[in-house]
Amino acid sequence: MTCARLQITRAGPHCTIQDGGRAGFLRWGIPASGPMDRKALAIANAALGNPPGAAGIEVGPGGLDLELAGAPLTLAVAGGGFLVQVDGSPRPAWAVLRLDPGQRLTIRPGPWGSWACVAVGGRILAPGWLGSLATHGPSGLGGGRLAAGSVVEVAGHDPAPGPDRAIPCPVWARPRRRLMAVAGPQDRFFAPEALAALAGQPFRLTAAWDRMGLRLSGPPLPPQGALGVPSEPVLRGSVQVSGDGVATVLLADHQTTGGYPKIATLLADDVDGLVQNRPGDAVTFALVPPQAAVQTARLRAAVLAAFLPRLSPATRR
């Protein structure tokens, strides 16, 4: 059978192959990785009838261009509000697209958002690592980093993809400016004024970011007497504060242990809502009790679980 080949002709930073993530390896120093916006991959996959965590291409803030070779292929794009074109002809930012060999898909920075996911109507052939195609950005282990010249092979394809169509973009998939977090686990090293500043004042995303973390600018949050604390486990979403009071939010490729105090930890879904913002954007933090955080997680999971089946080609036909 002929494979479809996605020939990458231009890739901004941090374009990678990602699946739903490599959970279960934190004790070995390995973060789950996976897409920066996990809902984007799940939505793009659902639009093709794929499982939510099937491997696709995550496109970073600079966008990505590709040309298809080999066999025809159906793709789905979701995530940020990028400018999507096929052979120069505009398409919706969230769309199911059929490409024939020789056609070019361009995904360029658009009016909003920083990350998009491209799901494929088939199976990405890539080496993988520890049973997952998620790419650990700093090492490149996993499905792999993408750059101009990379080729992504896709086996199999949807025999009846249906016409090109837009995918509805719900408001909860947009960049999130008000982020929910639970205080701690090292809030005891901060004065009440610092916690009040975290919860009451805006912080801006800086240009200092990668797939491991995102530095914020805002009121200083000086830790008190925390620098001798033994390193402990950290998570995607940990808001760690360095000795000079600057906060960094840990992201998909985070280190798994660290010694900086964590003043708060974002809810998992709010980490993804955060990274769809752009440098200079302002966000605020709402500190919520742990039980309210769990209830919010359950509500959001139920909303996503109800949304995804409505996108599937089987439902639509």
């Binding site: 934190l26 004790r27 390193s231 402990e232 486990p233 742990p290 039980q291 997680a297």
Partner: peptide
């Protein structure tokens, strides 16, 4: 329980919030 991360003086338990809660 999704996974457990042992460290120097503590360990972290990651769990599925749709199945369990902190309590």
């Amino acid at each position: 329980q999704v996974e457990v991360v042992p460290a120097l003086v503590n360990l972290l338990i990651d769990f599925d919030p749709c199945v369990a809660d902190h309590a």
